[in-house]
Amino acid sequence: PPEGEGAVGGSGAPRVELGAALATPEVVSTASEPANSQRLAPHLPPAPPAAPQDDVRTTLLSPQFAQAANQFSSALTSGQMGPVMTQFGLPADVTSAANTGDMQAFFKALESASSSESGKSEGDR
């Protein structure tokens, strides 16, 4: 589909908000797989005393996470996420894709970065 191309402020392209996209059953079940939820666990929000700790599922389904994810996607499509990606140690390809503001390009770059790195992929910290 041609809509995805050059979507910076693109008029035709639908505006994708990641909040809803990351709360779908597919994402929830992928993220909840033991190996994956272990990687996500250190990044979960804290709980107040006497309240249950949020897990991956409650996090993905919470409105506060949705808001953060939506903020992420609007920052990404405005092309301002490159520097942040660098902080997270993501490769230059991914960073420059993030700088274009094209979510599709960013996701593709992230996918090819992870496949070229597979095999030795225990460190994602």
């Binding site: 990641l18 990351l22 994402v27 992928t30 993220a31 994956n36 990687r39 996500l40 250190p42 990044h43 979960l44 929000p45 996090t59 506060q64 996470f65 953060a68 994810a69 992420f72 942040v84 990606m85 997270f88 993501l90 996701f107 992230l110 996918e111 970065a113 992870s114 496949s115 597979s118 992929s121 994602d124």
Partner: peptide, 14 residues
């Protein structure tokens, strides 16, 4: 939530 989001996107990318 940023570290969570990045880690999640990495997982989904893999």
């Amino acid at each position: 939530y940023l570290p969570f989001i990045i880690t999640l996107l990495k997982i989904l990318a893999e």
